[in-house]
Amino acid sequence: ETKSLTLVLHRDSGSLGFNIIGGRPSVDNHDGSSSEGIFVSKIVDSGPAAKEGGLQIHDRIIEVNGRDLSRATHDQAVEAFKTAKEPIVVQVLRR
């Protein structure tokens, strides 16, 4: 079962304390579909994302501050987090 969660993150020394993997390839599949998503791959101990109620590894990131990342490329997702103003509201899907 997958549930949708909304989390609020604040940077600590400029970092949110997690890494992402995935992202849509720069070239779409011929039918326009994509199974890619942006997923949390690593969480830094005691970083902002590790706090209670924070992110978990394998969370799929859907949205950052209202910006849809469900079909974003990896670079677009990285840029969305880099430029996001605080508080950073992150919507994820968690299995």
Rank of each mutant, 00 (worst) to 15 (best):
G22L: 07
E63A: 15
K3D: 14
G47N: 11
I38N: 02
G53Q: 08
N65Q: 03
H10F: 10
S26G: 12
H10L: 06
V27A: 12
I88V: 10
S4W: 04
E63M: 10
S70F: 09
V44E: 13
R71E: 11
D12E: 14
T73D: 06
I20E: 00
I88L: 12
Q91P: 01
G22V: 13
G32Q: 15
D68L: 02
G66L: 01
G23A: 08
R94N: 02
R24T: 12
G14L: 06
E86F: 03
T2H: 11
I62G: 01
V78A: 15
H58D: 13
K42Y: 11
S46M: 09
G37C: 03
E1F: 13
N19F: 06
S15Q: 07
I61C: 01
S35T: 13
S46A: 12
A50S: 13
L93S: 07
V44T: 12
S35W: 12
L5G: 01
S13P: 04
R24P: 08
Q91G: 06
S15I: 07
E36Y: 08
G22Y: 12
I21A: 15
I61W: 02
S41C: 06
V8H: 15
E36R: 07
I57D: 05
D75W: 07
G47Y: 07
H58M: 13
R24W: 07
L5F: 11
G17I: 01
S26I: 10
K3G: 05
H10I: 06
R11L: 03
R67K: 13
G22S: 13
N65Y: 01
S34A: 13
R24Q: 12
K42C: 08
F39R: 05
R11C: 05
I43Y: 02
G47M: 09
V8C: 12
V89H: 12
L9I: 13
E1G: 11
E63W: 06
S41K: 05
G17K: 05
R24D: 14
G54M: 10
I21V: 12
A49H: 12
D45Y: 06
G66Q: 04
D45I: 05
D31R: 07
S70P: 01
S13Q: 14
L55I: 09
R94M: 00
G23K: 15
L69P: 01
A49R: 09
D31L: 09
V8S: 15
S4C: 13
I57V: 15
S4F: 15
D68G: 03
A72K: 02
R67I: 14
H74Q: 11
T6I: 06
D28W: 09
I62A: 03
A49T: 08
A49Y: 06
V27E: 09
D31W: 07
R67Y: 14
V90A: 09
I57E: 12
H74Y: 15
L55C: 01
I20F: 13
L7S: 04
S34D: 15
G53L: 06
G32R: 12
A50I: 08
K51C: 11
S4M: 13
D45V: 05
R71D: 15
R24V: 09
Q91A: 05
G17Q: 04
G53Y: 07
V8F: 15
R60W: 02
S13W: 05
R71C: 14
I57K: 06
S4A: 04
D75K: 08
G32N: 15
L93F: 04
L9P: 02
I57A: 07
K51Q: 12
N19L: 05
I57L: 15
E52A: 12
D68W: 00
E52F: 08
